[in-house]
Nucleic acid binder design. Structure first.
Length: 463
RNA sequence: GGCCCGGUGUCAGAGUGGUUAUGUAGAGGACUGCAAAUCCCCGUACGGCGGUUCGAUUCCGUCCCGGGCCUCCA
């Protein structure tokens, strides 16, 4: 078995993955704040983590993947006010939409998907402990974490406070002792959601939820912590500080051993983000493209590289999938050799910090071999192709369904199409090609593509 | 100001100190009445400038360009 190498943000280098407990791998990833539709950048994180989990499951007997739902946050409060929707209704809606959309992208649901609001008690007790240990202080109804009380603060993001101050844009709130201190608990007014606490009615700060939930669901330390690149600082840095301080750990790896961060999806080279407004919503994209196409687009480049999102990469992914599904269709009646596992070349590629582009290269080679092979090894090759696809979350559909052979996209009656094809073939028999081509144009206009094969004319809906 | 990441053929995108993936687009050919699909085949790319080397896209230096984090963000 090849060694899995993973780029660890902590230390900023690729290293060998050594599990804490090889019988049980534990992974946590920061999930969405549910106040709006997820954009394709949010989806990248979900797809990358899903891929990691699928790959880990192919190596280790047991993997627990936890990804939270943040359902209390000021953005949610604002969205609730703006849309005049009760918070519970709003968060329930977008949590559901998120899971549906990610499901369409082939993202398996996390084993545990804890909600922040279900863990207020744990957060309060963690904060309480931090105060007792002088890692946190109460100021003006807020509870703040004292950054200078954790000596390894900044290790993850590779920055130190002194260097930051000069050009920093941080406005220091007057209740903070030091500029880097961050909120653990903040007061809520009457009309804001809040929970009783030793520090009055209030709500948690952003970072504390992940510390509370990861510890509760996975226990410490766990193997891999993931999220988008922009969470490195401050979110993950603060998470480490809180959890390590609370447990008197010096080493961040006593909290989580490996930290992975996916790069951004960009638009014209610029980061896609809700605040910039240059976003593509997954929900909208799914109306135009199959989820699997979007998934392949998202993993077509290495997860740490920026991914510039445009219609061209989607088309290219679609074409690549069409090609492979065509080969699978040509081999529809070949039974899969059940003894076949994912080929070494594919495993090796993924073992190299999830090199999906390289894995796709290997997969294309297998597909090519399958399409050109004689009967002897078709079963093995098909097994290799399908099992490789399974790790990537691809090629698990029926090829005919995918290629839409005999299926209409719109509400055109398939009998109507069959009639036109019959008419065309009659015209061809008497060599009336002008008439035949006219009928074909008619079909093209309604997005139907025809192929004349040895076994007759077949048709499919083009995307 | 501090820290970080990129710049590869039409596009996407790995990778490597010398044999120069793969997908996509395009040229040419086979097949087809014509297409579609398929097959064959072609283009020889690595930001600029120096250096190390027999040899660098790959290592080093430097410069240019783009992006990110330091504030909510995947």
């Amino acid at each position: 078995m090849s060694i899995f190498k993973i780029h660890n943000t902590l230390g900023n280098k690729k290293e060998e993955f050594i599990p804490i407990d090889k019988d049980h791998i534990r992974i946590y990833a920061c999930g969405p704040t549910v106040y709006n539709y997820a954009h394709i950048g949010n989806a990248r994180m979900a797809v990358v983590c899903d891929l990691l989990v699928r790959f880990m499951r192919s190596i280790y007997p047991k993997v627990t993947y936890v990804s939270n739902i943040t359902d209390i946050d000021d953005k949610i409060i604002n969205a609730s006010l703006e849309t005049n929707t009760p918070i519970k209704e709003l968060t329930a809606k977008y949590e559901k939409v998120y899971n549906q959309d990610m499901g369409e992208l082939g993202v398996l649901k996390p084993d545990i998907q804890p909600r922040a609001t279900d863990h207020i008690k744990e957060m309060i007790s963690l904060i309480d402990q931090l105060i007792k240990q002088n890692n946190a202080y109460v100021s003006d109804n807020h509870v703040l974490f004292n950054v200078s009380s954790y000596k390894n603060y900044g290790l993850l993001s590779g920055r130190n406070k002194e260097d930051q101050i000069a050009g920093s844009r941080v406005e220091v709130a007057d209740y903070k002792n030091n500029s880097g201190d961050f909120v653990l608990w903040k007061p809520s007014s009457e009309d804001q959601p809040g929970w009783d606490s030793p520090w009055g009615k209030g709500r948690p700060g952003w970072h504390i939820e992940c510390s509370a939930m990861s510890e509760k669901t996975l226990s410490l330390p766990f193997d891999i912590h993931g999220g988008g690149l922009d969470l490195t600082f401050p979110h993950h840095e603060n998470e480490i500080a809180q959890s390590c301080a609370a447990h008197k750990f010096d080493d961040p790896q006593d909290y989580a051993k490996y930290w992975i961060h996916n790069g951004f999806v960009t638009m014209d080279g610029e980061k896609m983000s809700k605040s910039l407004g240059n976003i593509f919503l997954v929900n909208d994209l799914l109306k135009k493209y199959p989820g699997e196409t979007l998934r392949l687009s998202l993993i077509s480049s290495h997860y740490r590289q920026p991914l510039n999102w445009n219609s061209k990469i989607i088309e290219q992914a679609q074409k690549n999938l069409d090609r492979i599904y065509r080969i699978l269709k040509d081999n529809e009646n070949i039974s899969i050799d059940e003894n076949i596992h994912v080929p070494d070349n594919v495993v090796d590629a993924l073992s190299d910090d999830l090199n999906t582009s390289k894995a796709m290269f290997e997969i294309n080679l297998i597909a090519d071999k399958l399409s050109k092979s004689n009967n002897k090894n078709k079963s093995a090759l098909k097994g290799e192709l399908v099992s490789s696809g399974k790790i990537l979350g691809l090629f698990q559909q029926s090829p005919s369904e995918w290629l839409k052979y005999g299926k209409t996209n719109n509400n055109i009656d398939s009998n109507f199409i069959e009639e036109l094809i019959l008419k065309r073939n009659k015209a061809r028999e008497v060599k009336n090609f002008q008439e035949a081509d006219k009928i074909r144009d008619e079909l093209t206009n309604i997005n139907i593509e025809i192929e004349d094969t040895i076994d007759g004319t077949i048709w499919r809906s083009k995307n």
